[in-house]
Nucleic acid binder design. Structure first.
Length: 268
DNA sequence: ATGGTTGCTTGGCAA
């Protein structure tokens, strides 16, 4: 049994629904995880997913900002959404689906961006980001079970490695690449001994990005990107992974998101 | 060092 998971910070699901439908048609994912849907649950385009063959659709969205969703054509055993930091904003949703072997849980995260100033004392948004990562780490750790199939995907808003950014030197004090954030992300990863499934297929010796700012023309030529989006597999799930990819071409779509989709392929 | 763009909404924030 093959399972394909696609994860994308779509930056408005309503604005880019046609781009998403063409991506679904082309890549045929079994699971679609979105971040920054910017769409309240009662306005979510559920029917568009149904028509595209993804019958089970769940949204954790609020008006205006952030918001996550998961759509799948697999049987859903369980749905969970965790409200970290008591903010009541849509930054997490998880589904447990049925595979040939045993249940697979997909956690979809949208970690707070953290504002501009990398100091929790003077910047509440940065504090929220660090607190969110601490709470998510503790929550995952409390659920840890060696034999479970767990996938964590999403826009984690941190590019941890030197080769996850266009210039380590110029970004080391910029939110998304500061040492304190990198440590918190590593804590999140180690909470479940996750394996970085993108880097498993894209070695650390090469520069790899999933996001290019809207604020520069010729995004491709200047190539000042960051790898903010991630796919992590639990050790048991890692046994079944066949490949991952970063669909960079999507950054060239008409009215693009500033992020591109990630894909992971599993065979159970 | 600064400003650059986009989306949700129509003024200003969040990214």
């Amino acid at each position: 049994m093959k399972v394909r998971v696609l994860s994308w910070n779509i930056n408005s699901v309503r604005l880019r629904i046609d781009s998403l439908l063409s991506i679904i048609k082309e890549y045929r994912p079994n699971v679609v995880c979105l971040q920054e849907t910017k769409c309240p649950n009662d306005q979510y385009p559920y029917e568009e997913f149904h028509k595209a063959g993804l019958r089970n659709v769940y949204s954790n969205g609020i008006k205006g900002y952030h918001g996550v969703s998961i759509a799948t054509n697999l049987e859903v055993e369980r749905v969970e959404q965790k409200d970290f930091c008591q903010k009541k904003d849509g930054r997490h949703l998880s589904l447990t689906v049925t595979t040939k072997n045993k249940p697979l849980t997909i956690n979809n995260f949208y970690v707070p961006a953290g504002g501009d100033e990398p100091d929790p004392e003077i910047n509440d948004k940065f504090k929220h980001k660090l607190d969110f990562l601490d709470e998510a780490s503790a929550w995952l750790k409390s659920k840890k079970n060696k034999k479970d199939l767990i996938l964590l995907v999403g826009d984690l808003n941190i590019a941890p490695h030197e080769n996850d950014v266009w210039s380590h030197k110029q970004l080391v004090k910029i939110v998304s690449h500061t040492p304190v954030e990198v440590r918190k992300l590593e804590k999140l990863r180690s909470s479940y001994d996750f394996i970085d499934s993108i880097r498993k297929f894209y070695p650390y010796t090469e520069k790899v990005y999933s996001w290019w700012s809207y604020r520069s023309k010729n995004w491709e030529e200047s190539n000042r990107g960051r790898r903010l989006d991630h796919m992590w597999s639990s050790p048991e799930l890692d046994k079944f992974i066949k490949s991952t990819s970063i669909e960079k071409r999507v950054r060239d779509f008409e009215r693009p998101s500033d992020h591109v989709p990630l894909i992971a392929d599993f065979k159970f």
